[in-house]
Amino acid sequence: MALRTIRAALWATVMTAALAGALPAPASAQAAPSGRAGGHERAQAALDAAVGKGVPGALARVQDGGGPWVGAAGAAEMDTDRKPRAGERFRAGSVGKSFVATVVLQLEAEGRLDSDDTVEKWLPGLVRGNGNDGSKITVRQLLNHTSGIYSYTADPAVHLGGMAFLKHRYDTWKPEQLVRIAMAHRPYFPPGSDWTYSNTNYTLAAMVVERVTGRPYESEARQRIIKPLGLRSTFLPGADSKVPGPAGRGYTGFADDPELKAHDVTEFNPSVYWANGDLISTTGDLDRFYSALLRGVLLPPAQMKEMTTTRPIGTSGYVGAGLGLVTYRTSCGTELWGHNGSVPGTEVAALSTRDGSHRIVTHFSTDVFLTTPATADIIDAEFC
C-alpha cells in the first residue's frame, strides 16, 4: 500500500488513537451473521478489510478443532510487497500484563505473598502523597485495576501523546521514576471503589515480584513462563530499542504533526512501558501461552479462580476484568478470555474460549486503529 494512502488513513483516525494502553472504550463492532461456514474465509476477508481501512499490515493466527490457521494482509513494511508472516516478532503491549499476573499468582501459590497483602508491605513508602496510600491498596487491586492509582502514561512528562515522542523515543526510564510521576497525581478514586485501567498498577506489581524474589522481574518471567512453555521468540527487552528479526515494521501518526506523516516507530526504548507493555512475542508464542494458562498448566485451581473472577467494565467488547485477564463478548454473544495491547506502532489481541479449544491472536502494524471496529470485525468473523 502506498505511503500516501496509509498517511491519509492514519490521519483520519489519529485523533482517537490510544498510544499507551489497552482495554479502550469498547469498539462497536458491526453485527456478523451467525454461524461460521467452513474454514476461515470470513476472518481473511476481515483482515483484508482492515488493510483497506489503512492498516499497513495485519496478521492473525487461529487454533481450533481443525488445527492452526494463519492469515495475513497488507505489507510487513510499507512500500514493499512482503506480507506479514507467521513467526515474525512484534511488540505485544499490554498482553504482557497476563504474564505479570501469572508470576504474582504463582508466588502466592508458593506461599511467598498473598494477593491481599498491601502494597506498603512490599514497597514501603513508595505509594504515598497526594491522597495515595499504599497501606490501603492490595496487590489484588493492582492486578484488577481497582487501586485508583493514576496511570503515569497519561502524564505529558513521559512524552507519549504527540510528536514529542519522536524526540524522546530513546529515553531510558526506571520503574521508580514512573511511579513517582503517578504519585504526583491524586488517585482516580478510593481503592476498591471503582475500576480504571492504569499502567502504573502493573509497574508496581512487577516491583513487588522483584522485592519478594530478590530477582529481576524479567528473570522470573523467563524461568516461570517463557522457558517452560518453549516460547522461543518471546522476551522482555529491558531498554533495548530494537525488535530483533524476523519482524515487520510498526507505524503511527500524531495529532500534532503538521505534515500528517505515517511515522515508522519500530525502534524505541521500551523501558517507558516496563513490565506493563514491553513484551515482544509472536502470534504462535502468545497462542501457546494463553492455551497453557487457560488449561491450568501455569496456575493451580485456587489461583485460576482468582484470576478468572471478574468485575464488569463494559457492556460490549471488553466487558469484564479479572487479574491480568479480561473477558470479551463478540457481537453474537460468544465469551472469550485473554488480553489486548497497544504501544506505538502495534495493536494486538489474544483471545480464547474459556476451555482453550478455539483461540485467536491478531496483530496490526499500527496503533492508530485501536478504537475502530477493525479488530472486533476479525474476532466476530472467526467466532460468530
Rank of each mutant, 00 (worst) to 15 (best):
P24M: 04
G162I: 00
A255G: 13
W274F: 07
A255N: 10
T282D: 09
G314P: 12
L323P: 01
L142P: 02
P191Y: 11
D278W: 01
H363C: 10
Q44Y: 01
V14G: 01
G322Y: 09
Q106P: 03
I6A: 09
F235V: 09
V127M: 07
A46N: 04
T327N: 13
G333P: 07
A31Y: 04
N340T: 05
E259G: 09
D256W: 04
T266C: 06
H363D: 06
T327R: 15
V326T: 10
A255F: 05
R222E: 15
R359A: 04
E259N: 09
L123A: 03
F383R: 12
I6V: 15
G214W: 09
L107A: 04
T334H: 06
K174M: 15
P124A: 01
N201F: 05
T309Q: 14
V127A: 11
V51T: 00
N269Y: 08
V265D: 06
I226L: 10
V343F: 03
T327W: 14
R61K: 13
G284F: 09
I225L: 15
D367C: 01
A25P: 12
G296D: 13
P373Q: 00
Y273G: 01
Y188C: 14
A262C: 09
A154N: 14
P237W: 13
H159N: 07
R91M: 10
T283P: 06
L142M: 05
A8V: 11
G134I: 07
L351V: 04
G284N: 14
L204I: 10
W69H: 11
S198Q: 02
A37M: 00
L229F: 02
S291V: 08
A25H: 10
I181T: 11
Q44N: 00
F268L: 08
W69D: 14
L160I: 02
P244K: 13
T309K: 12
P216H: 13
A255M: 05
V51I: 08
L260N: 14
P26K: 06
M78E: 07
F189I: 03
G67L: 15
V14H: 05
R224W: 03
G248I: 04
A184H: 08
D64K: 01
T252G: 05
V265Q: 05
P246I: 01
K53H: 13
A73F: 06
L236T: 00
R329Q: 15
H40A: 08
H339L: 01
P344W: 00
D81H: 09
R91V: 03
A60V: 08
L325Q: 06
V70Q: 11
L47H: 11
L236Q: 01
E41P: 02
S115L: 13
D117T: 08
L299R: 07
A75N: 03
A376M: 06
G57T: 06
T310E: 14
K167P: 00
S233E: 15
G129N: 08
Y188K: 13
K97H: 00
D380M: 12
R169I: 08
A350L: 04
G87W: 03
V272A: 10
E218D: 13
C384Q: 04
A374G: 00
V368E: 10
L178C: 14
G148W: 04
